[in-house]
Amino acid sequence: MRLLTHNMLSSNIKGVTNGFPLLIEVEKVVEKQVDFNEDFLRNMFAKIEWKALVKASRTMGYTELPENSEASMLNSDEFLRKFHHALLELHLEEGALVCPETGRKFPVNKGIPNMLLHEDEV
C-alpha cells in the first residue's frame, strides 16, 4: 500500500465520524520504484491532505517531507522528488491501518489493505 492510497482511505465503520487519517502499524516497509511524472504529482498535490501524508511518511521511516507545504514548492525539483518518493514509492507490505476513533484494525497483507467491514460495522 502506497501512501497515496493511505491518503485517500478512511475508516467507514457505521457511526464513526472521524475516520481519517488512519494510523499505520508498520511490520514491513519496502521501497518500490515508480516512474517520475511531474504532471501527475502536480495534479495530485491539490488533492492530498498534507499533514496526513507527512505523519504517515514519518511512521514509515521517511522524515524528509516539510511540515507544511504550499503550491509554490512544486517549482522545486528537490521537493517534487521527495513528494514523489513519499507518495508513491514507500510501500507498506505488512502491517495494519488503525481506525483513529475505534481502534479497529484493517490488516495490510502482501501490500493489500483489507477495508471490508464486519457485519456489525455496516
Binding site: 502506497r2 497515496l4 491518503n7 485517500m8 478512511s10 467507514n12 475516520g19 477495508m115
Partner: peptide
Amino acid sequence: LSLLRADNNLPPWRS
C-alpha cells in the same frame, strides 16, 4: 499504484 480490498457499495474513501 494500489490494489485494495473494498466494497463498491460502502467505499472507504475519506470524506
